[in-house]
Nucleic acid binder design. Structure first.
Lengths: 197, 197
DNA sequence: GTCTATATGGCGATAGAC
DNA sequence: GTCTATCGCCATATAGAC
């Protein structure tokens, strides 16, 4: 790894931190430069513009997220076990803060998603999987698209709304973290009870 | 209603539109002035600063939201009927776009919530209600705080993440709206099945 | 109270020396 | 490749006439 690559790696790390924390509009190139330990001019030398740097960070985030949704066909686990695994995986990802970042930026500029999704292969492996379960009568009849939305909602929303939950439930940080430790299992159990016959 | 009040009303309406659409950082005072049909100087005359105007809009939004959470004790409906009413009410509110606004701004600045929530009366009427149902064995044993999070998540997240859902499920706007028409009932049914004995 | 014109400051981006 | 200095723009906010 040469000098240049090292610097760019430091920049990307700093940029990711800042963009995820403050969003595109709230992020300052000067702050990214400070965190990376270089000057603003050097920063612009490596990544021509703020837009350019942002695109890089955003695409990296999407690439971390999208594969998560495609883990439904490829093994012989029972559907209950698959729900358990899915909630665990998704919650782990979501707690890194990247999900909030993705959602915020998509709402700022919906076009961010368009190109990327078009390139992706069909992402509906959850939907087709639960369609199959519906057709073979293994679960209570439920629109698989709604099921997809319910699962995503239960897993993603706590990380996005945690400030509100913390305060409305009047929990200290410590209490909230304790509550969230059991969240993946509780969520999976909730979902399984909702759709089993 | 005098001249001044009329102008301020126009400003508040325009400001609400802009802040909800673009967020604090993305909103321009010039645009608010244009939409309200006045000059930027007049805008500053009525509301000293952007911060000031924003605070007003944000507090109004919170005041619309907070009462929604407190509709659990005051009648003799069954718990299933209460879940139905709650999901319907919350979804209606959420689809106005105000919820996304609140969440985005809280994540930008968590302090926005602190003062407001401290003033509020105990908001845990859902939690105490479901605690009671737990204690009297009317539902499957479930931590009522998690239940609160599940309900909020299922109702709020689709409005916040709709761009993603639309594209990942490959639905046209028309198809997505059709899917969402039945969402409140489907969500309530999902929740009820998850916790009934 | 409303306007036009302007002050003030911040930020993205670049010039040019080393 | 990195730096300091600076340009050019845009956004909030204010001055001052009407």
């Amino acid at each position: 790894m040469n000098e240049s690559t090292v610097t760019e790696e430091k920049i990307l790390q700093a940029a990711r931190l800042e963009f995820e924390k403050k969003g595109y509009n709230g992020t300052r190139m000067q702050v990214i430069a400070d965190v990376a330990g270089i000057s603003k001019a050097s920063l612009h030398y490596h990544f021509r513009s703020k837009d350019n740097l942002f695109q890089r960070i955003f695409n990296d985030a999407l690439n971390d997220y999208i594969p998560l949704v495609n883990t439904w066909k490829d093994d012989s686990l029972s559907w209950e076990e698959k729900v358990n695994r899915f909630t665990a995986d998704l919650l782990e990802f979501v707690q890194k803060g990247t999900m909030l970042f993705i959602i915020r930026e998509i709402n700022r500029n919906p076009d961010l998603l368009s190109e990327r999704i078009k390139k992706a292969k069909s992402n509906n492996s959850l939907v087709t999987y639960f369609e199959e379960l519906n057709n073979t009568g293994q679960i209570r009849q439920t629109d698989p698209r709604l099921l997809y939305i319910f699962l995503q909602s239960i897993c993603c929303f706590p990380a996005i709304n945690n400030q509100m939950f913390r305060k409305v439930l009047r929990l200290t940080d410590r209490q909230y973290n304790e509550l969230m430790e059991g969240y993946a299992r509780a969520a999976a159990s909730f979902i399984i009870h909702a759709i089993k016959k």
